[in-house]
Amino acid sequence: MRVNCVGAVIFDAFDRILLVRRGHPPGMGLWSIPGGRLEPGETDAAGLRREVQEETGLHVEVGRLAGTVERPGPGGVTYVIRDYLAAVTDGTPAAGDDAADVRWCGMDELARLPLTEGLLDTLSGWGLLPR
């Protein structure tokens, strides 16, 4: 079974990337970009805005598709994740919903944090690492 998901690649004015620490499986305790499953009938843009707001308290404008990845999930599920660039339009970052923490990270922090599998390589391949 394939499950449609979205993720947001968000940078601040200091070229730091926004990461959330997962509060629930899959990837509990690991850091990743905000995102999650689409609800039935939901567009990618609507789902991305909802997920980012639920997990971080931020409102975003959805930009271009950065890329798509597939990740295995429990019970033979495959998560099809479309990651988009997004820009903050309002709000202050605060962990909510299934996020245990939220923070802006430069490359030095990104390299030290326990990240979800493949995140660093994927962002690098897309040319989307913080400076």
Rank of each mutant, 00 (worst) to 15 (best):
H59E: 15
S124K: 11
L110D: 08
A111P: 04
G7C: 06
G127R: 05
E70Y: 11
D15I: 04
V20P: 05
G7H: 07
L18N: 02
L110E: 01
V60T: 09
G91L: 00
G41T: 09
R64G: 09
G63Y: 02
E61Y: 06
L123K: 00
R49V: 01
D108F: 10
G23V: 04
E42I: 04
G23W: 03
G118M: 13
A111V: 11
I81K: 05
D90L: 09
T43Y: 02
P34H: 08
L123V: 03
L48S: 10
R82M: 07
A13N: 14
L85S: 14
D101E: 11
G76H: 11
T89H: 04
R71I: 13
L119E: 11
D121K: 13
L58E: 08
R50Q: 03
L18Y: 06
V69D: 11
R21H: 10
V80M: 03
E51C: 06
E117A: 14
T78G: 01
I81S: 07
G23H: 08
T43R: 02
R2D: 13
P72H: 07
D44E: 10
A66Y: 10
G127Y: 00
R131C: 06
G96D: 06
V3N: 05
R71F: 09
L18A: 05
A95C: 02
G57I: 12
L58G: 12
F14I: 10
I10F: 01
D44C: 07
T89Q: 08
T116Q: 06
D15T: 10
V9I: 15
M28P: 12
P40W: 00
G106A: 06
P40D: 08
N4P: 14
A99Q: 00
F11K: 01
I17V: 15
G91V: 03
R131N: 13
R82Y: 09
D90C: 05
D15R: 12
R2E: 13
P26R: 07
E61P: 08
D15K: 11
A100Y: 04
I10L: 03
T92K: 09
L48N: 08
D98K: 13
T116I: 11
G47R: 03
V77E: 14
L128R: 10
R37M: 12
T92Q: 14
V102F: 05
D97A: 15
P25I: 13
P26N: 09
A86R: 04
T56V: 07
E54T: 09
